[in-house]
């Protein structure tokens, strides 16, 4: 199936320019980059690439790479 959780985690790593091994599902996003706006850019880029919408309220409880990937995956499935 296209765009698995692992695929999306890998894409997060690529966008943030960190080794794939660092962007494991349980990695806390703010541990990957300290600049919060860099995370915003990454989330916008994921939406552009996967053609999904994520809003401020959706992301309130997202802390880890895996949670973000699951959210993106859920949006892809819904679309």
């Amino acid at each position: 199936m296209p765009h698995t959780i692992d695929d999306i985690c890998r894409r997060v790593a690529e966008i943030l320019n960190v080794p794939v091994t660092r962007a494991a599902p349980d990695t806390v996003l703010t541990d990957l980059v300290s600049d919060s706006f860099r995370l915003v850019e990454m989330v916008i880029q994921l939406q552009e690439e996967y053609d999904v919408i994520i809003g401020q309220r959706d992301i309130t409880d997202v802390r880890t790479v895996g949670q973000l990937a699951a959210l993106v995956r859920a949006r892809i499935v819904e679309a």
Partner: peptide, 10 residues
């Protein structure tokens, strides 16, 4: 306002 996370919010 909180950081925007999509283009519409931006």
């Amino acid at each position: 306002a909180g950081l925007p996370v999509n283009l519409m919010e931006v």
